[in-house]
Design a protein around this nucleic acid. Structure first.
Lengths: 138, 138
DNA sequence: GCAAATTAATGATTTATTCAAG
DNA sequence: CTTGAATAAATCATTAATTTGC
């Protein structure tokens, strides 16, 4: 659409986006009509917006959230399987076991992420080919 | 730690920092294990570094970025709330209150909602009263 | 100018939350 | 309802900036 005549579809301002995400994070998923009206009123202080935009935003966000998670889970399952094959010639099985080599804080349980990745050092013999940070394969 | 024995924590070289920020600027946020390995390999050309350093750097950078934005937004919200007029005459008050009355998500949601709500425009005379989502207490 | 003292940044850990599978 | 996996939020801890008194 012609630039001077306003866009054909709603484009959230950063403030609007943050507020929406904040609401989403605190548990709002499918606001009812009344809630949508309140939210729209609040967001309208930061830019042009209509109730249907709010309604659709929550619909889409919820859906895409789930989608993203599903894909991520699949990816990581595949990755983990690959890596297990790659450097499994020694040590215990299950990559989560190899945690003993992180900074020895006595009461430490596995805190974060894939320890196989965290424990890789720059001196090590990494041989990763093909980066192509093309996530979202599946 | 003893002076000759190396520092207790990673300190990024200017080159490493530049590369990391460049990646962040182009959209890298939570690299997976494989990506972290690639990045670490690349950065190790400029100084000692481990995968966990890369992992932490993105975690922290992303979090503090959000934090900064959130603080800015809160200032604006507080300003807005000072000027806000309490409306109070009809229907539910805090939009979060009416959670109890949300349509049970068990089955199908109303697919296209209340047309009155969808058609409401931001030009209307809606007024929100304080939601007091204490975002980021400052 | 220069360190000791103080404050700001930021690396590293811990804790809480989230989603979905069982 | 419980639990596994991932990660965002909150927090701790150390290094860098800076302020300060000499």
């Amino acid at each position: 659409m012609s630039p001077a005549a306003g866009s054909s579809r709603w484009c959230p301002t950063p403030e609007q986006l943050m507020i929406l995400e904040e609401m989403y994070k605190t548990g709002v998923r499918t606001p009812n009509a009344s809630q949508i009206q309140h939210i729209t009123a609040q967001l309208s202080l930061y830019g042009k917006i209509e109730c249907k935009n709010v309604f659709y935003w929550f619909q889409n966000h919820k859906a895409r959230d789930r989608q993203k998670l599903r894909r991520k889970l699949n990816k990581q399952l595949q990755l983990q399987q690959q890596q297990e094959v790659v450097h499994y010639n020694q040590q215990s099985h299950h990559f989560l076991d190899s945690f003993g080599s992180l900074p020895a804080s006595s009461t430490q349980q596995l805190p974060f992420y894939n320890s196989a990745a965290l424990n890789c050092s720059s001196g090590g013999s990494w041989r990763c080919i093909r980066t192509s940070n093309n996530l979202e394969g599946a």
